[in-house]
Design a protein around this nucleic acid. Sequence first.
RNA 1: GGAGAGGUGCCCGAGUGGUUUAAGGGAACGGUCUUGAAAACCGUCGUGCCAGCAAUGGUACCGAGGGUUCGAAUCCCUCCCUCUCCGCCA
Length: 431
Amino acid sequence: MLDIRYIRENAAAVQENARRKGYDVSVDEVLRWDKTKRQLQQQADELREKRNDISSRMKGGKPEPSLVEEGKALKDQLTAVEANLKEADATFIEQLKKLPNMALPTVPVGTTEDENVVIRTVGEKPQFDFEPKNHWELAETKDWIDKARAAKIAGARFAYLKGDLVRLELALWQFGMDVLGNEAILQKIIDDNGLKVSAKPFTPVIPPAVARTAVFQATGRLNKEEQTYKLEDEDLWLNASAEHTMAPMYMDEILAEDSLPIRLVGYTTAFRREAGTYGKDAEGIFRLHQFNKLEMESFTGADTSLEEHLLMVAIQEYLMQQLGLPYQVLEKCTADIGRPNAKGVDIEVWLPAQNSYRETHTADYITDFQTRAMKTRVRRGNGSVELAHTNDATVFSERPLIAIIENFQTASGDVIVPEVLRPYLGGRETV
RNA sequence: GGAGAGGUGCCCGAGUGGUUUAAGGGAACGGUCUUGAAAACCGUCGUGCCAGCAAUGGUACCGAGGGUUCGAAUCCCUCCCUCUCCGCCA
């Protein structure tokens, strides 16, 4: 959520920002509730001051009837004020949480994802002297994907992945973990991109795949209608990314400055309802209710968070280059970056059979929007306390497998394994 | 899932209704002393919110949320978590 003091002083800018991001919210209403809440808070504080005063005059255990009467009267007043305060505060927080994070001035203004701006195109698109197949056509002949039986078991948008496709996927996780855990490689990426951040390696994490309502809400990522699955009979939601369970790890904690940056690379199975996408990407494994994912998450101070975001994008590009996949980098527009984001970058991979670039990676620059709700703070060397900043970004999902299959297919229907993955596949050159 | 015991600050730990403004110890930080260090001694040492230019004042927070009371860390209820034993289990 946003800082209420910032909203008070920049109401017009906050309203305009919400409009640009496509959120129908009223800053004036937030400010009205803020004012109401503060007035009630003031009244409550004054009544409590009197109550505490009376109480301190009665210490010693011999209550004077007149003071007790006065206390009773105060109690009635306070009960009424506190009831109003509680209601006003709840409404205020509810309204406040609806306001989207401020987009950086550099974020392109747009009303749909079509207005995202391509800032880089990297790699050569493959040339085929035969008609390239879709990933699901290739997978069919290899018996890699069984969606018919998965539908029988779990419904549409689920799949059994089988055979060498599974081995290829496991290789991808290994490769990603190895790059993110290698300080020398990170230092090279940092140097090549002119960044000045630490080369501290990412710590591998396997997080819980579920989170409580309050925790999920604090991340700003709970999206009941379209995305998030709820467990029946439990106050638990299935995560749609390891981000959702790693970002709140340090809730209610004050981190020591010298522990930063905290860098995590989490592996989890992600679950997404995908409501409202009926018929979209119905074939193959491009859009499933369940998929595996490797995700970066980091906690930094405000001073280094933007560079941290740029590092994550640089890592994503490095990974795609190592795999030899052609891709483009997009600066996401205001309508597409999402409510908690101040900035967002997507990477889209070239899919020859679809004759288009499709999203494989996202990098989210969140600033303090999550940590304000999560109360994750940093204690500086001089003793001052400030909100931490979070960043998250995709390392790999299963979508790069689609890109590998389609870009590296041969006339005979085999797939050439990217060199960097071969060590994890016993040196095999094709699958 | 059953039975029992617990949850207090960075850590340990005292506190069972009224100067708790949370004792005491440790750690940390600053200082005195010392050639330097250790020891000793002195001091500092939680996080929000509101008002204020500030100094400061008020208020809240002892796992979470309710309740009882003039007054709750303390009593009651619900929930969460930890530990011990039992049961079940990859």
